[in-house]
Design a binder for these strands. Structure first.
Lengths: 190, 190
DNA sequence: TGGCAACCGGAGGCAACCTCCGTATAGTAT
DNA sequence: ATACTATACGGAGGTTGCCTCCGGTTGCCA
């Protein structure tokens, strides 16, 4: 299911080590304070210079993409696991709920990730497509069983989920988020 | 329906003139390039110094709030006008559609406004509450006529609308936005 | 017309982003 | 082991945008 750390090309040992340290620090910072991380802080936490961070991740976007790649692959795996579930509708809803938790954890990342997905050929774009394809199967199953409207599109549904998180970012109230999620779920139901 | 330019207190004529010039420049800039306006540019466009801008609008938030105040009051007026409509459901949907257009125009402002609304006592907060109250009447009418679920909350609905705009900010596709909007509408329908 | 409270404006401090280049070192060839 | 070099390190410093401060200016009233 899971995968080994990403190794982009042949790299010197110290370079690979720093690359990993930076990613670890970035993920920790994002989990704690959201995606508005200060890259200088990440570099310090990782114990490397800012120059090193920028060599490995030329843009802020590159770092964020890499930081979320793992989680995206995990969500794809979850979708694939849920395909075996006998309850098509419940499986779909469960997966969408996971999506929402993922989005909440990377609060403020929404916009960044949203932009990244469209960069053709990027690692995250590929992973995101794979994840969405896996989710699509859940959606189509639920449509085949008559639980979901036929004209519903997975991209739209995912965006609605991300939109909820973004709109509630400033004042996150768990029960409000839950209610909004349920409205969306009701909206796609046949 | 509409209202005269806002005059906060007794101000010297030059101060009032600059205040208005700044707001005009800010609204123009937002309409053209979204809410990521550079305040230095706004000041230059308005023909005043940056210091003057900051005296009138101590924080970026203050300027954005003021820039959107008019539109918020207008949306309230629209809700009040729609109360007379015989079709409760259609009136509600029409008003929500207006909300979406409003949000689209101030692209990237979503988060800022979302934050501002909660600043107790701010002009925009008061105006926003008034607008929401007016919208609430539309909602309750649609609930009374059995068109909308009883447990739907206007705050949730508005946030969903704003969420759509935010989630589609990076790559706005009008028909996708329309489809997402319709999913939300379907979600609140009884 | 004088006086002053209100107002103006831009120089400059600060924070975050990112680049550049002199220094250090892992890996390799001898 | 040693020397060599491609690769990598790291932080000084340039850039941009945010915001403050205060010496100079001006509308307004007596």
């Amino acid at each position: 299911m899971s995968q080994a750390p990403v190794v982009k090309a042949l790299r010197r040992a110290d370079a690979q080590r720093n690359y990993d340290l930076i990613l670890v620090a970035a993920r920790a910072a994002i989990a704690e304070r959201g995606a508005h991380i200060v890259l200088e802080d990440v570099a310090r936490d990782a114990g490397v210079g800012i120059g090193t961070l920028y060599r490995h991740f030329p843009t802020r976007q590159d770092l964020l993409e890499e930081a979320f790649l793992e989680e995206t692959l995990l969500l794809r795996d979850r979708a694939e696991a849920l395909v075996d579930s006998p309850e098509a509708w419940e499986a779909l809803v469960a997966w969408l709920r996971l999506q929402m938790e993922f989005a909440s954890r990377g609060r403020s990342l929404g916009a960044s990730v949203m932009a990244a997905k469209h960069v053709e050929g990027s690692d995250l774009q590929v992973a995101y497509s794979a994840m969405r394809d896996a989710g699509d199967i859940l959606l189509h199953r639920a449509q085949a069983s008559g639980d979901v409207k036929d004209d519903v599109d997975m991209i739209d549904v995912l965006r609605l989920v991300y939109g909820i998180v973004m709109a509630c970012e400033q004042a996150p109230e768990p029960d409000r988020i839950t209610r909004m999620f349920e409205l969306v779920i009701a909206g796609i139901r046949a």
